[in-house]
Amino acid sequence: QEEEKEIKRLAKKFNASEEEARRAWKKAGGDPETAEKILKKKG
């Protein structure tokens, strides 16, 4: 599933848990760029 792959990639890229990545993904409405910004800010 595309979403799961994206979440795993985000978690790995930002050294975050999949739970954090999933939360960022949901907050971003499934937009990878926005999710990255959220995780970057958090990191």
Rank of each mutant, 00 (worst) to 15 (best):
Ala24Val: 05
Leu10Thr: 01
Leu39Glu: 00
Thr34Met: 15
Ile38Phe: 09
Ala16Ser: 08
Arg9Asn: 06
Lys42Ser: 15
Lys37His: 09
Lys41Val: 10
Ala24Phe: 02
Glu3Gly: 07
Glu19Arg: 07
Glu19Phe: 07
Asp31Asn: 11
Lys12Val: 10
Glu4Ile: 09
Glu19Ser: 07
Lys27Arg: 07
Arg22Cys: 09
Leu10Phe: 03
Gly43Val: 13
Leu10Lys: 00
Gly29Lys: 11
Ile38Leu: 11
Ile7Trp: 07
Glu20Phe: 04
Arg22Pro: 00
Lys40Phe: 12
Arg22Asp: 03
Ala11Lys: 04
Gly29Glu: 09
Phe14Glu: 02
Ala11Pro: 00
Glu36Asn: 03
Glu6Pro: 03
Leu39Val: 02
Glu3Thr: 10
Lys12Asp: 07
Gly29Asp: 08
Leu39Asp: 00
Lys42Met: 15
Lys27Leu: 15
Phe14Ser: 02
Lys13Tyr: 06
Glu33Ile: 13
Glu4Gly: 06
Lys26Ala: 13
Gly29Val: 05
Gly43Met: 15
Glu36Arg: 05
Ser17Pro: 06
Lys26Ile: 14
Gly30Ser: 04
Glu6Gly: 05
Gln1Lys: 12
Lys12Cys: 14
Lys13Ile: 07
Arg22Leu: 09
Lys8Arg: 12
Arg22Thr: 06
Thr34Gly: 10
Lys41Pro: 07
Ala24Lys: 01
Gln1His: 11
Ile7Met: 04
Ala28Trp: 01
Ala24Gly: 00
Ala35Thr: 05
Leu39Met: 09
Ala16Pro: 00
Ile7Tyr: 03
Lys12Met: 12
Lys37Gly: 07
Glu4Thr: 07
Glu18Ser: 04
Ala21Asn: 00
Phe14His: 06
Gln1Trp: 13
Leu10Gln: 01
Lys13Glu: 06
Thr34Asn: 07
Lys12Leu: 13
Ala24His: 02
Ala11Ile: 08
Glu36Met: 08
Leu39Trp: 01
Trp25Ile: 05
Glu4Lys: 06
Lys40Gly: 12
Ala35Ile: 06
Arg23Asn: 13
Lys12Ser: 09
Lys40Met: 15
Ser17Lys: 04
Lys41Ser: 13
Ala11Met: 15
Ala21Asp: 00
Trp25Ser: 02
Lys26Tyr: 14
Ala16Asn: 03
Lys5Arg: 13
Ala28Phe: 01
Glu18Gly: 03
Arg23Glu: 15
Trp25Asn: 02
Ala24Trp: 02
Ile7Ser: 01
Lys26Thr: 11
Glu18Gln: 08
Glu4Phe: 07
Thr34Phe: 10
Arg9Tyr: 06
Lys12Asn: 09
Ala11Thr: 04
Lys42Asp: 12
Gly43Lys: 13
Lys41Tyr: 15
Lys5Pro: 06
Phe14Tyr: 15
Gly43Ala: 12
Glu19Gln: 08
Lys37Glu: 12
Glu3Cys: 12
Ile38Ala: 03
Ala28Asn: 02
Ser17Leu: 04
Asp31Tyr: 03
Gln1Val: 12
Ala11Arg: 06
Lys13Gln: 08
Glu19Gly: 05
Ala16Gln: 06
Asn15Lys: 10
Glu2Pro: 08
Asn15Gln: 09
Asn15Trp: 06
Lys27Pro: 01
Trp25Tyr: 11
Lys40Trp: 13
Glu19Ile: 06
Lys40Ala: 15
Glu4Met: 10
Glu3Asn: 09
Lys26Arg: 14
Arg22Trp: 10
Thr34Val: 14
Glu6Ile: 12
Arg22Val: 04
Glu6Ser: 07
Glu19Asn: 06
Lys26Pro: 01
Thr34Ser: 08
Gly43Ile: 14
Ile38Trp: 07
Trp25Phe: 11
Glu3Asp: 11
Ala11Glu: 03
Phe14Pro: 00
Gly43Thr: 11
Leu39Ser: 00
Lys42His: 12
Glu20Asn: 04
Gly30Val: 01
Glu3Phe: 11
Ala11Ser: 06
Arg22Gln: 05
Gly30Ala: 06
Lys5Gln: 12
Asn15Glu: 05
Glu18Phe: 14
Asn15Ser: 08
Arg9Ala: 09
Ala35Pro: 00
Leu10Asn: 00
Lys27Tyr: 10
Glu4Pro: 03
Glu2Asp: 14
Pro32Cys: 11
Glu33His: 10
Ala11Asp: 00
Glu36His: 05
Ala21Gly: 02
Lys26Phe: 14
Lys27Asp: 15
Lys27His: 10
Gly30Glu: 03
Lys40Glu: 14
Trp25Asp: 00
Leu39Gln: 00
Glu6Leu: 12
Asn15Cys: 14
Lys26Asp: 13
Gln1Arg: 10
Arg9His: 05
Ala21Glu: 00
Phe14Val: 03
Trp25Thr: 02
Gly30Lys: 06
Glu19Leu: 06
Gln1Tyr: 12
Lys42Val: 13
Glu3Tyr: 12
Ala16Phe: 07
Ile7His: 02
Ser17Phe: 03
Arg23Tyr: 14
Glu33Pro: 06
Ile38Glu: 05
Glu19Trp: 09
Ala35Ser: 03
Leu39Pro: 00
Lys27Thr: 12
Lys27Cys: 15
Glu19Lys: 06
Lys5Ile: 12
Gln1Ser: 13
Arg23His: 12
Ala28His: 01
Glu6Gln: 11
Thr34Asp: 05
Glu18Pro: 07
Arg23Leu: 13
Leu10Cys: 01
Ser17Glu: 03
Asp31Gly: 01
Arg23Gly: 07
Phe14Cys: 14
Glu6Phe: 11
Glu20Lys: 04
Gly43Asn: 13
Leu10Trp: 02
Glu18Arg: 05
Glu3His: 10
Gln1Ala: 13
Ile7Lys: 01
Ala28Tyr: 01
Arg9Gly: 03
Ala21Thr: 07
Asp31Ile: 08
Lys37Ser: 09
Gln1Phe: 14
Glu2Asn: 11
Lys8Pro: 03
Asn15Tyr: 06
Lys26Val: 13
Lys26Leu: 15
Lys41Ala: 15
Ala35Phe: 04
Glu36Gln: 05
Glu19Tyr: 08
Lys13Asn: 04
Lys13Phe: 06
Ile7Asn: 01
Pro32Asn: 05
Asp31Gln: 05
Arg22Asn: 03
Lys40Asp: 10
Glu33Thr: 09
Ala24Leu: 02
Thr34Arg: 13
Thr34Ile: 15
Glu36Asp: 04
Ile38His: 04
Gly29Arg: 10
Glu20His: 04
Glu3Gln: 09
Glu33Cys: 14
